[in-house]
Amino acid sequence: MQTTYTVTGMTCAHCARSVTEELTELEGVTDVSVDVPTGAVTVSSTAELAKDDVAAAVTEAGYQLVG
């Protein structure tokens, strides 16, 4: 399963690594792809993820999930 989210506040590769690190800690996540210029974060997982869990992981990384 693949879901794309929009994350605000990312400006560099370090930002992308921080978001990726937090999201990969969620159970079932198999891959994370971040496009810093657009804020698009595509998460591949074995099952649907709770949006609250994704938002919490993004917040932990220091950024904000849009929507």
Rank of each mutant, 00 (worst) to 15 (best):
A16L: 04
D53T: 08
V29T: 10
D53A: 12
V66W: 00
E25F: 12
K51Q: 05
D52E: 11
T3N: 07
T24K: 14
S44P: 00
D31N: 08
K51Y: 00
V7M: 03
T11R: 09
A16H: 03
D53F: 14
V41Q: 00
A13D: 11
G39Y: 10
T46E: 12
T20L: 01
Y63M: 03
V34P: 04
V58Y: 04
S33I: 00
Q2H: 10
A50T: 12
L26Q: 13
A13W: 10
R17C: 06
Q2M: 05
M1V: 09
V43M: 01
M10D: 13
V58R: 05
A57C: 08
A55Q: 04
V66N: 01
E48K: 13
D53C: 11
V58K: 06
P37V: 01
T24Y: 12
V36F: 10
Y5P: 06
T42R: 02
T11C: 15
A56Y: 13
A57R: 06
A55T: 02
V41E: 02
V54W: 02
K51D: 07
S44K: 10
T46S: 14
A50F: 12
A13V: 04
E27K: 13
E22F: 05
V36P: 09
T8S: 11
A56H: 10
C12M: 09
T8R: 14
S45D: 07
V66E: 05
Y5D: 01
A50K: 11
S45Y: 12
H14G: 12
D52P: 02
A61K: 11
A57D: 08
A40N: 11
E25V: 14
G28V: 09
V43G: 01
T11Y: 14
S45K: 08
V19D: 04
L49E: 07
G28S: 13
E25H: 15
T59A: 10
A55M: 04
A40S: 05
A47V: 12
A56S: 14
